Amino acid sequence: MSFPFFTLSRRSLLSLAAGALAFAATPALAEKSSSGKVSMEELMGPNALPDVVEGGAAAPVTIVEYASMTCSHCAAFHHEVYPALKKNYIDTGKVKFILREFPLDPLATAAFMLARELGDKRDAAVDLLFSQQKNWAFTDKPLDGLANVLKQAGLGQEKFEAILKDQALYEKVNKVRERGSEKFGVNSTPTFFVNGDKYTGEISVADFDKIIAAHTPAPK
């Protein structure tokens, strides 16, 4: 199958995804201290695509992650760290969490487009794609792999092909990435903003505990 904006061969897409891994790997480990700060008003301003927010609106800590679906470090975060964040902070009303699209290659863009069109299943689709990343991002037929994985989320082949032909959606996903780069200096994945403080690379559960504690108001 082919789509208008995928002018590269599938093998070229694999090469791009491999390059994205190398790009995203610097720095591979997060600094425990913030590498900068951005305005929360700007950070939470409107994007080309609406934010999908997990957690309570009144949570005192907001975490925004910029991720790429073909980034192994992003997949590691969602597999190894995110479940603890969800259990300890998001589900308890202490943190609201937002994942924003920052595709590093056309294949990651495609994955984000497909996840977006699943509506309220978007975050579940993202988790599924990260957990099975090796089954679609690093195969000889990545689009076929994507289709097979997303069948588990109820996405049929006809709808799959229609989404990937949606030029407007393609442009919106990339506008989210462009805003992250231009406004907030995002240049690698994953990049996190915790109440506006910027952290790049992988962050352990223990480090997130410390970062969140530093941003949580003391009990009165």
Results as ranks from 00 to 15, higher is better:
P4D: 11
F5M: 08
S9I: 02
R11A: 15
R11W: 00
L14A: 11
L16H: 13
L16C: 11
A17L: 04
L21T: 13
A24I: 01
A24K: 00
A25Q: 11
P27D: 03
P27I: 00
A30V: 01
K32H: 11
S34T: 14
V38W: 03
V38C: 10
S39Q: 02
M40Y: 05
E41I: 01
E42P: 05
L43F: 04
M44Q: 12
M44S: 11
N47A: 06
A48P: 05
P50S: 14
V52L: 12
V53R: 07
A58D: 15
V61R: 09
V61W: 05
T62I: 10
S68P: 01
S68D: 03
S68W: 00
T70S: 10
C71H: 02
S72P: 14
S72I: 08
H73V: 14
C74G: 10
A75H: 06
A76Y: 06
F77A: 07
H79T: 14
V81K: 03
Y82V: 06
Y82I: 03
P83T: 05
A84S: 13
L85E: 12
K87R: 15
Y89S: 09
D91N: 13
T92L: 10
G93A: 02
G93K: 01
V95Q: 04
V95A: 06
K96V: 08
F97W: 13
F97V: 07
R100Y: 10
L104V: 13
D105H: 02
P106H: 00
A108W: 01
T109K: 06
A110C: 13
A110Y: 08
A110H: 10
F112P: 07
M113K: 03
L114W: 09
A115Q: 05
R116Y: 07
L118F: 01
K121L: 11
D123M: 01
A124S: 13
A125R: 02
A125D: 09
V126A: 09
D127M: 08
L128W: 00
L128V: 02
Q132H: 14
Q133R: 06
K134V: 09
W136E: 14
W136S: 13
D140K: 02
P142C: 10
D144R: 02
L146E: 12
N148W: 01
N148V: 04
Q152M: 10
Q152P: 03
A153L: 11
Q157N: 11
E158Y: 03
E158S: 13
K159W: 01
I163L: 07
I163Q: 08
A168G: 07
E171A: 15
K172H: 09
K172T: 10
V173L: 06
K175D: 12
K175Y: 04
R177L: 06
R179S: 13
S181G: 14
S181M: 08
S181Y: 05
F184S: 07
F184C: 07
N187T: 12
F193N: 08
N195F: 03
N195Q: 06
N195C: 09
N195H: 07
G196W: 00
D197F: 05
K198L: 12
K198N: 09
Y199S: 10
T200E: 15
G201M: 07
G201T: 04
I203Y: 10
V205G: 07
V205Q: 11
A206N: 09
A206Y: 00
I211W: 12
A214S: 15
A214P: 06
A214G: 15
T216L: 11
P217A: 09
A218R: 12
